[in-house]
Amino acid sequence: MKKTKIDRSIDTEALGFQVRESYKTARTNIAYSIFKKGCKKVAFTSSTKGEGKTVTSINVASALAQQVGTKVIVVECDLRRPRVNTALKISPTPGITNYLNEECSLKEVTKDTKIENLKAITYGAIPPNPSELLASEAMAELIKTLEKDYDYIIFDTPPIGVVIDALPIMKASDGVVIVARNNSTTYPELERTVEVIKRTDAKILGVILNRVKPHETRKGKGYYSRYGGYYKTETKD
């Protein structure tokens, strides 16, 4: 009998479409999870580092910015391990730390990206006191100022299971999205993350699960969907 060779290669074009559609689904769920007029503020966090938090937050921000007339800004709040500038390929300085220390203007730290209607504020410099800066009155005033010009503010915050710098930002946000990584984030880690966020009285919008292969979707849903209003699968960070 003649052997038939089975093509086990991945259809990258179809895979890319699936990824884009996943982010659009997340975009829709976020929009319908926050019932308010005006600017919507969303904080992204994770249990630990390396779970795809920054790339996920930027991809969701990009999906939001693709809507007609929607202005979005990503604000770097992970001041211990900043990655927004690297992901968007923009300069890290001047940034939010410079602005909060009154070293430059808001215009100077607000950077254009290659994505239309999407701007970003990077970190500037690694500060010795990130928790104090994010909890400062200057940070609260910055958020109020940005609310006037943008439809969405996306905060890329530190992993809540590692440091508590992000708690003031979560309190100021309309909702929090937890990013987890398939076959990496553990159930106890996720549970601790949820409990910490709940203690701040912040609203958990849902969990976005990264690195999920198409055939694992149902398995992933059962594992994580209890923690929020929506579920998201990804094939890559």
Rank of each mutant, 00 (worst) to 15 (best):
residue 137 E to R: 09
residue 120 A to L: 04
residue 162 V to N: 09
residue 232 K to D: 03
residue 211 R to D: 14
residue 230 Y to G: 11
residue 201 D to S: 14
residue 145 T to V: 06
residue 145 T to P: 02
residue 211 R to K: 13
residue 139 M to W: 01
residue 135 A to T: 07
residue 120 A to H: 00
residue 232 K to L: 12
residue 210 N to C: 06
residue 170 M to K: 01
residue 127 P to Y: 09
residue 209 L to I: 14
residue 204 I to L: 04
residue 187 Y to F: 13
residue 193 T to C: 14
residue 180 A to C: 13
residue 177 V to L: 02
residue 173 S to T: 02
residue 129 N to C: 05
residue 186 T to Q: 00
residue 215 H to Y: 12
residue 231 Y to H: 13
residue 230 Y to V: 03
residue 171 K to N: 00
residue 219 K to H: 10
residue 210 N to F: 02
residue 180 A to W: 04
residue 115 I to T: 15
residue 189 E to R: 10
residue 189 E to D: 13
residue 164 I to E: 11
residue 186 T to Y: 09
residue 197 I to A: 06
residue 90 I to R: 01
residue 126 I to K: 11
residue 97 T to N: 00
residue 194 V to I: 14
residue 191 E to H: 13
residue 169 I to P: 05
residue 164 I to Q: 10
residue 225 S to V: 12
residue 155 F to M: 09
residue 153 I to C: 04
residue 162 V to Y: 08
residue 111 K to E: 06
residue 228 G to C: 01
residue 165 D to A: 10
residue 139 M to D: 08
residue 102 E to A: 15
residue 94 P to I: 03
residue 211 R to H: 14
residue 195 E to Y: 11
residue 142 L to E: 07
residue 226 R to P: 07
residue 195 E to L: 14
residue 152 Y to C: 03
residue 193 T to Y: 03
residue 166 A to F: 09
residue 152 Y to D: 00
residue 175 G to V: 03
residue 178 I to L: 10
residue 133 L to M: 13
residue 170 M to E: 09
residue 142 L to F: 07
residue 125 A to N: 12
residue 203 K to G: 06
residue 123 Y to S: 15
residue 97 T to F: 07
residue 145 T to L: 12
residue 87 A to R: 06
residue 117 N to G: 00
residue 166 A to Q: 06
residue 212 V to D: 03
residue 152 Y to R: 06
residue 158 P to E: 07
residue 232 K to T: 12
residue 95 G to H: 00
residue 231 Y to C: 05
residue 223 Y to I: 14
residue 203 K to D: 13
residue 135 A to W: 01
residue 219 K to S: 13
residue 229 G to T: 08
residue 232 K to W: 12
residue 213 K to V: 03
residue 116 E to I: 11
residue 89 K to L: 08
residue 229 G to E: 15
residue 180 A to Y: 01
residue 143 I to R: 00
residue 98 N to D: 15
residue 213 K to A: 11
residue 89 K to Y: 02
residue 147 E to Y: 04
residue 219 K to L: 12
residue 148 K to Q: 05
residue 199 R to S: 15
residue 184 S to L: 13
residue 138 A to G: 06
residue 116 E to D: 12
residue 153 I to F: 05
residue 100 L to M: 09
residue 190 L to M: 13
residue 106 L to F: 11
residue 198 K to F: 04
residue 143 I to E: 05
residue 163 V to T: 14
residue 159 P to N: 05
residue 191 E to A: 13
residue 97 T to M: 05
residue 183 N to E: 12
residue 164 I to V: 14
residue 154 I to D: 00
residue 130 P to K: 01
residue 173 S to V: 06
residue 192 R to Y: 11
residue 131 S to C: 04
residue 160 I to M: 12
residue 165 D to Y: 05
residue 184 S to G: 07
residue 103 E to D: 02
residue 112 D to E: 15
residue 191 E to Q: 14
residue 98 N to F: 06
residue 190 L to V: 09
residue 166 A to H: 04
residue 211 R to A: 15
residue 183 N to S: 12
residue 192 R to I: 09
residue 179 V to W: 08
residue 167 L to I: 15
residue 203 K to V: 10
residue 167 L to Q: 11
residue 140 A to N: 10
residue 213 K to Y: 08
residue 216 E to S: 02
residue 206 G to V: 00
residue 170 M to W: 07
residue 217 T to R: 14
residue 123 Y to W: 12
residue 119 K to S: 12
residue 108 E to R: 11
residue 125 A to P: 01
residue 163 V to W: 04
residue 96 I to F: 09
residue 120 A to K: 04
residue 90 I to W: 05
